[in-house]
Structure formats: C-alpha cells, structure tokens
Design a protein around this nucleic acid. Sequence first.
DNA 1: CTGTATCCCATATGATACTG
DNA 2: CAGTATCATATGGGATACAG
Lengths: 131, 131
Amino acid sequence: MGDIDTVVARIQQGNGRPAEGVCPIRDVLDQLGDKWSMLLIFLLAAGAQRFGELRRKLPDISQRMLTQTLRDLTRNGLVTRTVHPTRPPSVEYALTPQGFTLLDALGPLLRWAEDHHDYVRSSRRRFDAEA
Amino acid sequence: MGDIDTVVARIQQGNGRPAEGVCPIRDVLDQLGDKWSMLLIFLLAAGAQRFGELRRKLPDISQRMLTQTLRDLTRNGLVTRTVHPTRPPSVEYALTPQGFTLLDALGPLLRWAEDHHDYVRSSRRRFDAEA
DNA sequence: CTGTATCCCATATGATACTG
DNA sequence: CAGTATCATATGGGATACAG
C-alpha cells in the first residue's frame, strides 16, 4: 500500500483487462477521469441537492451528461439518489459516507492544483515558446 | 483553499472556458484524466527511465500514446526529457520536483482506491442486479 | 532507439426533441 | 422536474508504416 512497486505491479496486472478491471487504480480513475465526476463530487460536498440545482450550478453540463454522471456515481456507491413522491417529482442527490472519504482523499490533489496552477501554466508557455 | 465554496466558485468560473482554462481543478484534471498520465507518473516515481523501459513496463500502451503523453507531461513541467547524444539516441524521462509533489498529492487517492475497491465493485453488482 | 505521419474506429459528449 | 431517445460530432487512442 502506498508502496510504489506494488502500485506498478497492479498497474501492469490491469493491462489488457476485461470490462471492469482488476487494478483498483485504473478502476477508480476510469470513474473519476471523465469530464464531470469530480466536479459533481465537489459540488455535492456542500450537501444534498436536487437535479435542477446541480444543473444550475454547472451551467455548461448537458442534461444528458448530468443524468449519466450521477447514475454512474450512484452505481459506484459514491452518491445516493432519493426520489420524493411529489408532483412533479423531485430527486435529491447526496454523497454517501464513502463519497465523503473520497472527497477527503481528493483534498491534497485539490490543493496541489491550486498551488501549482501558475507553475503549470508558465511551463506550458515556455514549452510552446521553444519548439 | 480547500474551502469547498471556493472550489465550487472556481469550477463555475471555468465554465465555457477557452483553450486552457482559468479553473485550476479542471486544468489539472484535464491532464491527469487521460488514460496514461497518472500511470506514467507512478512508473516514473521509481526513477529516471528510458522510453523503451517505460514501454516495456506498460505493455498495452501504443508508441504513439507513450510519446504523446510524455510530451504533455513534459510540457506541463511534471517530467523532464533528456536526450543522450549516443548512436542510436537514448532518451531519459524523469519526474521534476513538482512531479514528485504531485505524486505525493496523489497518495491519498491511491490509498482510497485500494481501500475501497471492494466496496465499489460490490456497489456496482448491487446496482446492476436491481433495475 | 525514439519519434512522426496516416488512417481508422470506438467512445465521450453535446443538441434537440420528447415523456411521465 | 427529471429523465430518455436520437442524432451528430469531436476526440482519444490504436495499428501500421516510415524517418533520423
């Protein structure tokens, strides 16, 4: 755990994997690596929210992708989906306890991104300037 | 920083962004979210390595994607590329200091993935069983 | 050995219209 | 309001052949 050789071994083990892999890293990354999953997790960190609220807070997501991403997060046990039997229906989404632990695990990455954003951008400029 | 409201604000700020965004989260995720970046960072954590070595350790990456991913990582200042003027040429890749700090920031996520892999897989099974 | 160019396909995402 | 269906498109990524 945390041991790099172990990680590498697992990564290689995951090569040529079938549908849903053996390698936990790839498995988790496949869910988180898409365009919206992480952003939704961050949004949901503030508490349970309805479909429409999320949509408004993320103006450039399509209805289709919001539905789909929320379904995947639910399927993976990171988010709960609660239908309130009103007319018209309202549906609330919230992080599960495991969703919250994932959020914690994402904290350092978040901080890294903010702390190094300038560095990354200037690296790009320098790189593009050469060539 | 680390404050969720701030994060959300930044995410929204990034909406409808131009080429290379204002939002550090999206900016970093775009680089890390592809199929190979994180895996290469983990591999390079073990030390500088040549193109061919990396290729052998990641049997299912195409030459094209290896080149491309390494170039992007280099462009973002996470990896250095050193050409040794031998015949034939040999090229070594290594993490930069910033690459190593990113690696550290990724540690918790790695651990989460391992710790919760079983949970995620059983969640999926349960979800798929219903419907 | 390392890297580029080309061609091709699968998939992810978006736009729009429709339904309970 | 929340979700589905359909169509269209962009992009990611693989295979292969070639080049310095």
